[in-house]
Nucleic acid binder design. Structure first.
Lengths: 193, 193
DNA sequence: GGCAAATATTATCTTAAGATAAAAAGCATT
DNA sequence: AATGCTTTTTATCTTAAGATAATATTTGCC
């Protein structure tokens, strides 16, 4: 059932049978309906998330407009800023689909880290990897045109286009939905020639 | 001389006198001339850097154009991707000014981490902080217009405008130098009205 | 099947960025 | 002061994005 979590962790550190059992024990798995809000602006996140099934979106609310910053899908972990820092969240997390999510509270995670100290090294590695990824996507974003970013997203995460409305993808790409629609038309006629 | 390093570290973990002494011993400090290249595309970084004095820039070379991705100044640490990963670097690091830089090699840093294990927690915290910062600047970048990004950079890092040529700042903002020049004129006439 | 809500497209107009070339200004060195 | 080099600005033209409003299409639901 939560083998995804185990295989996620063992990408970083090996686990014994006992350790796997401990992790299974600790697991708190919940279902969320589409549009369920996991975290709101202004709230203090007390939990982090691991997506077993479904899709979650993070977004800012700026002048009444939602600006999507990330799409999280199966086997991705979400550690809200306000989980680590003691600040209220600046963004929202909500489900784009009915989702099954493993929750980690501060206390339970700390217990887990005590019982299995090598998980600390996993967390460290994960953060370091995420930093590198984030840096690279940022760099790409800056050096590519909106159209190139769109084409690249089509290649790297084609799944998103099947499960996420285009107007969320548009703000994720840093453009307006109208502009994305126009661009898609432009691109498709280019290809056909 | 390298008190900056100590105070950088003690922002994360407290240090005893002995530990400070150990760190001082380990320190390898070098001077670099303006335009010196610390790391080239394709190279494997064997070192990380801590800037004591000066300014370093990271950039990609794309179709013969340099795209600046970051400016590092006093008391900032640079850990190249290829220092942690076993991949060749995709970008360059070079000095915008004559600079004094503390170097950490993989071996020396590992020795240090063995001698002072709590530094591991510093590294972890640092990565986690950097991840959060990077995420936030990325989010800002996506939701702001080029002009707003320029104005924000003016506020947050006014020093850069005194020490870095505008054409580097332009590519850092994700626009062309010509466009930045035009924008500055536009902005200045706006303000004057 | 029909209706409302959600999502996507189209049209029009305005504004700013990209490309390119050329000129101007600033700086350092002799 | 003259030269060459770096940096910034200006000009022109082209292209695409933003804003806004209207329309079309799709989807879920009773």
């Amino acid at each position: 059932m939560t083998d995804e979590i185990i295989s996620f962790i063992t990408r970083f550190v090996p686990l014994t049978e006992e350790e796997i059992a401990i992790i299974h024990e600790q697991n708190l798995i919940k279902s969320f309906r589409k549009d369920a809000v996991l975290l709101s602006e202004g709230e203090y996140a007390k939990e982090c998330y691991f997506i077993l099934q479904g899709c979650v979106r993070s977004y800012y609310l700026i002048d009444g407009e939602e600006k999507t910053t990330e799409f999280y899908t199966e086997s991705q972990a979400i550690t809200p800023v306000s989980y680590t820092q003691k600040e209220p969240s600046k963004y929202y997390l909500s489900c784009l689909e009915n989702s099954i999510i493993a929750l980690g509270s501060t206390e339970r995670n700390n217990q887990l880290l005590e019982k299995i100290p090598k998980l600390q090294s996993m967390v460290a590695q994960l953060n370091s990897d995420l930093l590198i990824q984030k840096q690279e996507s940022f760099d790409d974003f800056k050096s590519l045109s909106p159209e190139q970013r769109y084409l690249r997203l089509l290649e790297t995460r084609p799944d998103l286009f099947k499960r996420v409305p285009l107007y969320h993808i548009a703000t994720y790409l840093g453009i307006t939905p109208v502009s994305l629609s126009r661009m898609r038309k432009r691109v498709s006629t280019k290809v056909k020639q």
